[in-house]
Structures are given as C-alpha cells and as structure tokens.
C-alpha cells in the first residue's frame, strides 16, 4: 500500500519533466515518503503482532510449548467433542509472550485475526495463555456472551485454571476448564440441532431449487432438439449429478465461507469460520 502510493507521484513527475526536477521538489518527495513510512510503521505498532491462523486448523495451539503431545491430544479431543456437540469453536492458545501488550489487546486481536466461531453465530471462545507474563484470558464471541457471562468465566479462571497453573500442571487446569464450560453449554440454550437447521438456510434451498429448474430446463430443451435418439445415458447422468453436487457443498462448505472448511482432512475440526468478539470475557494470572 505505501509503496504504490509512493511510486505513483514520482514516476508521473519523472515523465512529465525528466530533467527539471528541482532539488527542493525531490526533497519534499523524500520527506513525504518518509512521513508515509513513519505513519505506517506507527500504525502497525498500534496492533499486537499475533501468530498466524494454524494450517491445518486446530483448536489447541500450544505455541509456547507448555504441554506434552499426549496432553495436547487429549485437550484437542475434548474441544472437538464440544464442537461436535453444539458447534461452539473453543480455541485454546498458548503464546510464549505478548510483546508488551496487555492480554486484553492481544486476545481481541488474535480472535479477530483467526475468526474464531462461525460467522453467522459468532459462537467462538478463546482461552489465551501467555507463558512469560503468566496471564490467562477468556475472550467470548458475541454469540456466547449470554451463555458464558464474564463472572462465570472469571470463576473458571480462579477455581479451575489458576490453582493448577500455580502447581505447574497447566494441562489439568485446561481440561478442568473445558469440562466446566462444556457442562455449562450443555445445560444452556445452545442445541445440537440448531447447527443442522442453519446449514440449510432458505437461501441455499432457493439456490438448489433454482439450479435444478435451470438444469432440467436445459436438458429438456437440448433433448427435444436432438430428438428421441440423442444420448439418453449421458443426459440421464446429467440429471442425477446436480442434486448430489450442491448437497455436500451446502451442508459443509456453507458454514465457513472464508475459512475454507475442509472437514475430515485432519479427522475433525473444519476451520475457523470468521466469528467476532467484542472484548467480553475475563482475565486472570498465575504469576
């Protein structure tokens, strides 16, 4: 962005009068360029630099290396079970440090960058753990603020997470927290059926019907032109394909339009769907 902005005036200037660029003019261009670069770097500095979205998508991301691989596996399975049960995308992320930012700034940025939760439901939850600072935070997606009030998450931090972290057993704390939250969500308003209901939205249904009508129309038209002895087997195959092609596409791909959901690639989690958060949740610390 800054490069194109910079280059454009300079080249157009050069073409117009290649020899007469006065030093003062050149100087002002340099100063402007410097100002733009400075501005951009300042602007970038205002946002914490958070890690990139995991590929392939995972719910547990132990970037600080606080857990053993067996522990990671166990937590991922629990998070996946929760995701299967009610569609909630609960991401657990550990980072080595936060580069001088507060955990509130860092978690809202990470949440936004990864897009935790489905875009339509904003049903994401992030547990961020900063190893060096010894800080913990739950960041709730907009859609979960009602089911998981800040006070509840604060109690989970105080009662389930912090004691185990103090003892030096973070995995036990995380497992306990996931269980407590899963229990709460199971008793809450989120139902497993809602997920399926939403995946076949009226839009999708209308699209399928529309495509079916168009295809049937095209086939009828082409077969009537070619006559009865055209190619019955091929057009027959054409009729059968459309309902099966949009079927799985609507069912799976519909949920994460930007996330590139590839369910089954790693045996479970299909990817974050672009959910948003607004700073809700609770923070705590163990150091």
């Amino acid at each position: 962005m800054p490069m194109t902005r910079l280059r454009r005036p300079r080249t157009s200037d050069g073409y117009r009068r290649p020899m007469h660029a006065s030093p003062a003019r050149l100087w002002s261009v340099v100063v402007c360029a410097f100002a733009v670069v400075l501005f951009c770097s300042l602007w970038v500095h205002g946002q914490p630099k958070v890690p990139a979205k995991p590929v392939p998508p995972r719910l547990i991301n132990d970037l600080a290396g606080m857990l053993t691989s067996a522990e990671t596996q166990e937590i991922e399975e629990r998070l996946l079970a929760l995701n299967e049960a009610n569609g909630v995308q609960f991401a657990v992320v550990t980072v080595p440090d936060m580069g001088g930012y507060s955990i509130e700034e860092y978690s809202v940025e990470l949440f936004q960058k990864w897009g935790i939760g489905e875009a339509k439901e904003d049903n994401g939850l992030l547990l961020l753990i900063a190893d060096e600072e010894g800080r913990l935070r739950f960041e709730t997606g907009y859609g979960l603020e009602g089911d998981l009030p800040d006070a509840f998450l604060g109690r989970v931090i105080d009662e389930n997470l912090v004691p185990h972290f103090v003892e030096g057993d973070p995995a036990a704390g995380i497992v306990e927290a996931v269980n407590t939250i899963a229990l709460r969500l199971a008793g809450g308003e989120i139902e497993p059926s809602r997920k399926e209901e939403k995946s076949l939205s009226p839009d999708a249904l209308a699209a399928i019907v529309f495509f079916a009508i168009v295809i049937v129309y095209l086939i009828v038209k082409s077969s009537s032109r070619k006559g009865p002895s055209g190619r019955p087997p091929k057009s027959g195959g054409g009729v059968r394909r459309p309902p099966s092609t949009p079927g799985p596409f609507m069912g799976r791909g519909w949920k994460g339009p930007s996330g590139g959901s590839s369910r089954g690639s790693s045996g479970g989690f299909g990817g974050f769907g672009g959910g948003r958060s607004g700073g809700g949740g609770a923070s705590g610390g163990w150091k």
Binding site: D150, G278, S283
Partner: peptide, 18 residues
C-alpha cells in the same frame, strides 16, 4: 462482589474495544 468485579472489568474492556 467478585462476580460483579468480573462483569465490570469485562464491560470496561468491551467499552475499550467498541
């Protein structure tokens, strides 16, 4: 009071983000 504290600090953070 502890619950209220969590709610209040959550709200302060939401305000900052908004």
């Amino acid at each position: 009071f502890r619950d209220l504290t969590y709610e209040l600090s959550g709200t302060e953070n939401r305000i900052a983000v908004a």
